[in-house]
């Protein structure tokens, strides 16, 4: 990836990434390594998996996610992250807003109707 791409991505991720985490947790609680793997697959959403943990900490502080310990079949117990009711509301708001945001950007980039 060229450095220009990564600079743009850094700015685009802001605001979007935390809601992607909320979307992943919508429906099923997940633990850190799993979230990291899902988001880190293509290096578009997550530049380094390590930055997921400060992000999760912020989400927890904002009351958007909650954690609980679950025994693991292999290895030590795992901390699972799940969506709180506040997190669900934030996710629903983001879904709505994102759609109009994305449409507006696409239309502009494609030089559509003015």
């Amino acid at each position: 990836m060229d450095p220009g791409d990564s600079a743009i991505l850094t700015h685009l991720r802001r605001g979007a990434l935390e809601h992607c985490v909320l979307a992943l947790l919508d429906g099923e609680p997940m633990y850190g390594l799993d979230i990291a793997r899902r988001l880190g697959e293509d290096e578009v959403l997550l530049a380094g998996e390590g930055t997921l943990y400060p992000l999760l900490s912020r989400l927890r502080k904002q009351g958007l996610v909650d954690t609980s310990w679950v025994e693991s079949p292999s290895g030590p117990p795992r901390r699972y992250y799940e969506l709180t009711p506040t997190g669900e509301v934030a996710l629903a708001t983001f879904r709505r807003t994102w759609k109009s945001f994305r449409d507006a950007v696409d239309t502009t980039l494609e030089g559509g109707p003015r």
Binding site: Y31, G32, L33, A36, E49, G50, L52, Y53, L56, S57, S72, G75, P76, R78, R79
Partner: peptide, 8 residues
């Protein structure tokens, strides 16, 4: 979080 990530 990171300790757990690496332990897992």
């Amino acid at each position: 979080g990171i300790r757990e990530h690496l332990d897992a």
